[in-house]
Design a protein around this nucleic acid. Structure first.
Length: 616
DNA sequence: TTCGAACGGCTTTTT
DNA sequence: GCCGTTCGAA
């Protein structure tokens, strides 16, 4: 265990305290990842079987990196580790146990877009006007309720106003429809396991036995559902180790409950508390700036960060007239720093509060031929054309998935319009069939026009054909054949606009992603591919080998570090983000977000803003 | 009945 | 800048 002499005494303590509950309060740059990695390697090296470890991280990227490092320490044993994001780990568990919950193992996973569409269609059916009740707000409330493990009945009994009453109705129908579609949303991936464990004590016990040692990274960003889930799993052995920093809790909007970390010792009074306060990442100047910011927050665990690093260079403030000149000032400084410090573009990151801010920055960077990589924005797997093609695959895997069906029933155009779809839906619901099953009886459906009927019959025989082919072709052949038959690549080509060509390129890229996936994993299936892509984050895709400046939101920056950092748009209203109901709690979260940004910096920090009032 | 063009509204952060 | 809605043409 040679790795154990590469750490300081506090870190060593954190690595070796493997029995019982432990909370590690780890400041930025304090070697948190190192501790987690070594802790797992240590557990394995003292004889704990790797399959008894459950390690939950915030991003897949973090999980993969850690897994790699653990493999270096302990070898192939690490393969048996259950390590990943909450969502991917519990999706995996649900694939195994789905039938106990009345779901098929091939369930679809709905992302935000799919959920919104489903909610809109439910509101239509229930005659709830979307002008009066914003579907997004409804979706947000439902998600909120789920995060807090509040089921429809309870939600209905607590609703205080008309909006909540309507939401309660929609919520109940939403749950019913998801089940009919054999689909789960992101929140279900957390609350369905709770449901499973509550109703099947035996299964809970078997997982308690299995996961004797549980580790959770970024604990400050867990929500109520995750908390309940962990509590259930750790109940028997109580070997639960949480790592986090309340000062870096920035996902309140997603239901993260900072109380989880603040009150850990209340749930586990015997918990060992370990503080990691020595920072190895940043210069003294940067750390002190971060400290000045965060100490304004009232609600936090007191801590005292320190470093042996040098003072370093002072922070530079760039005051600009508008966003364009802000971009230009950043570019000037990038060139100067690259020259002066002999660094590369990949050592630099530009951060902002909202994705929309990346536009102007991109323009300026492109003009100056500085290579850049963007994390976030419109994600690849969210693009319309990609989602459309994926919807066909989802339907092949899960024929009950009516949402995916509705997405592609008339894409590309088959002359099946709104009215024809209504007829089909009526037919399907009177026969309690899913839409993709119902369409195979297209010739028996009365109502639709001739054109629509032909389209339906064609679509139905196409499904039949590919359902057969699915067993005969490899996933990569199958996907190519399907896209070919759809003819969308040619449609884009005929259209010829730059947008259409970009879409064409995206579909190509999707096909190569499938081939690549199949090549990397010998027993890859369409199912596993779909699961993978529905749970990837943008940060996961980020490749730090490529020599480019990284652009991203402050949220995505969590867990990363860069020698040079620019934080842009430091204006009232943008950072902190202006929101009519910005209260103290939210303001503190904005402050933590800024804190996260500052503490990503190793050597030199630039802060930029537009002085609109004085410069106009 | 379907489809494409034009218009207006809104827009935080993400697994 | 993106999405849904509306409206007119085929």
């Amino acid at each position: 265990m040679t790795f154990l002499n590469k750490v300081n005494s506090r870190q060593l303590e954190a690595i070796k305290a493997v029995q019982g509950p432990v909370i590690i309060v780890a400041g930025p740059g304090s070697g948190k990842t190192r501790v987690l990695t070594y802790r797992i390697a240590y557990l394995i090296s003292i004889g704990v079987p790797a399959y008894q470890l459950l390690a939950l991280t915030f991003t897949n990227k973090a999980a993969n990196e850690m897994k790699e490092r653990i493999t270096q320490q302990v070898g192939e044993k690490s393969k048996q580790l259950w390590m990943g994001t909450f969502h991917s780990i519990f999706a995996r568990l649900l694939r195994i146990e789905a039938d106990r919950l009345g779901f098929g193992k091939n369930f679809s996973i709905y992302d935000t877009q799919d959920r919104l569409r489903l909610i809109q269609s439910i509101m239509n059916d229930l005659h709830i006007p979307s002008q009066q009740y914003n579907p997004q707000a409804v979706m947000y409330r439902i998600s909120r309720a789920k995060n807090q493990v509040i089921l429809p009945e309870e939600y209905a009994s607590q609703s205080l106003d008309l909006f909540e009453e309507k939401t309660a109705k929609i919520y109940a129908e939403y749950v019913r429809r998801l089940k009919l579609n054999n689909a789960m949303d992101f929140d279900d991936l957390l609350i369905k396991p709770i449901e499973l464990f509550n109703h099947h004590k035996k299964i809970l016990e078997s997982y308690q036995e299995r996961f004797r040692f549980i580790l959770i990274d970024e604990y400050q960003d867990t929500n109520r559902a995750q908390y309940v889930l962990l509590k259930l799993l750790a109940e028997k052995y109580k070997n639960i180790c949480v790592v986090g920093d309340d000062a870096q809790s920035i996902y309140g909007f997603r239901g993260a409950d900072i109380r989880n970390i603040l009150e850990f010792t209340r749930d586990y009074p015997e918990a060992k508390i370990i503080h990691l306060e020595q920072n190895y990442r940043s210069t003294r100047a940067i750390l002190s700036a971060a400290d000045q910011v965060i100490k304004k927050n009232v609600n936090q665990i007191p801590k005292n960060l320190w470093t042996e690093n040098l003072d370093g260079e002072p922070i530079t403030i760039l005051e600009c007239v508008d966003d364009k000149s802000e971009g230009e000032a950043i570019v000037r400084n990038i060139f100067r720093e690259v020259e002066r410090l002999k660094i590369q573009f990949k050592d630099i990151a530009i951060m902002y509060r909202t994705n929309a801010q990346s536009r102007t920055l991109e323009d300026v960077l492109r003009k100056n031929t500085i290579p850049y990589a963007i994390i976030g924005g419109i994600e690849f797997y969210q693009r319309k054309e990609v989602k459309d093609v994926l919807a066909y695959f989802r339907l092949l895997v899960n024929p009950q998935d009516d949402e995916s069906f509705l997405r592609i029933v008339n894409y590309p155009n088959r002359g099946i319009g709104e009215v024809a779809v209504r007829h089909l839906r009526n037919f399907a619901s009177t026969n309690s069939q899913s839409l993709s099953v119902a369409i195979s009886s297209a010739d028996q459906i009365n109502g639709p026009a001739k054109k629509a009927k032909t389209g339906m019959i064609n679509l139905s025989s196409m499904f039949e054909k590919y359902r057969k082919l699915k067993n005969e072709l490899s996933m990569s052949e199958l996907s190519r054949a399907l896209v070919d038959e759809l003819g969308i690549l040619n449609l884009f080509k005929e259209e010829g606009t730059p947008e259409a060509m970009a879409r064409r390129e995206n579909v190509h890229e999707l096909l190569s992603a499938i081939s690549e996936f199949a090549a990397e994993q010998p027993n890859a299936t369409l199912e596993s591919f779909l699961q993978e892509v529905s749970l990837v984050a943008d940060v996961d895709e980020w490749d730090n080998e490529f020599n480019a400046v990284t652009l991203m939101t402050l949220h995505s920056a969590k867990g990363l570090e860069f020698p040079i950092v620019f934080i842009t748009g430091l204006e009232e209203g943008l950072l902190p983000y202006y929101n009519s109901s910005l209260d103290t709690v939210e303001l503190e979260e904005e402050r933590r977000l800024f804190y996260v940004g500052i503490t990503r910096t190793m050597n030199k920090l630039f802060l930029s803003w537009e002085d609109i009032i004085h410069n106009r």
